[in-house]
Amino acid sequence: MNSSSVDFHSFPSITLETLKKYASASGDFNEIHTNESVAKKVGLPGIIAHGMLIAAYIARRAQDYAEQECSLKDFEMAEFQTRFKAMTLLGDTPSVGGTVRTQSESELILDLVAKNQKGEVTTTGIAKFKRHPA
């Protein structure tokens, strides 16, 4: 077990129900995420997941990692950046993991990726944590 890696964790497969729930909770009602004919009309292969849903999974994995490392108890996320590389389709199963770029007394930086079930990177994320000012 490499201490500088963040193990990959799987998230549930993307269903239409997941996307409808995310649409109403986030306020992103772009129909390419919920309506197949709209998605196809704009040239997509079908309904695609909200990029920000996958980003939320990446941020979750980052927070879980930071919480599990007890030395990082007083750390909180200061910055989060995500890049969308490829689409996540209905039925895809994302998993998230990556590496620890920096871990010190004051700072933790994680470089994470979300992959689909084929192992293709769909989304990248950088999470920066800083020690909570006491």
Partner: peptide
């Protein structure tokens, strides 16, 4: 709570990091 549920997190009083996406008006 709705946002947490949509991304599979337990309910919390503090918003998760990507909650900021709700402010896209």
């Amino acid at each position: 709570a709705d946002f947490c549920a949509a991304i599979g997190l337990p309910v919390s009083k503090e918003a998760p990091p990507t909650f900021m996406t709700v402010f896209r008006g």
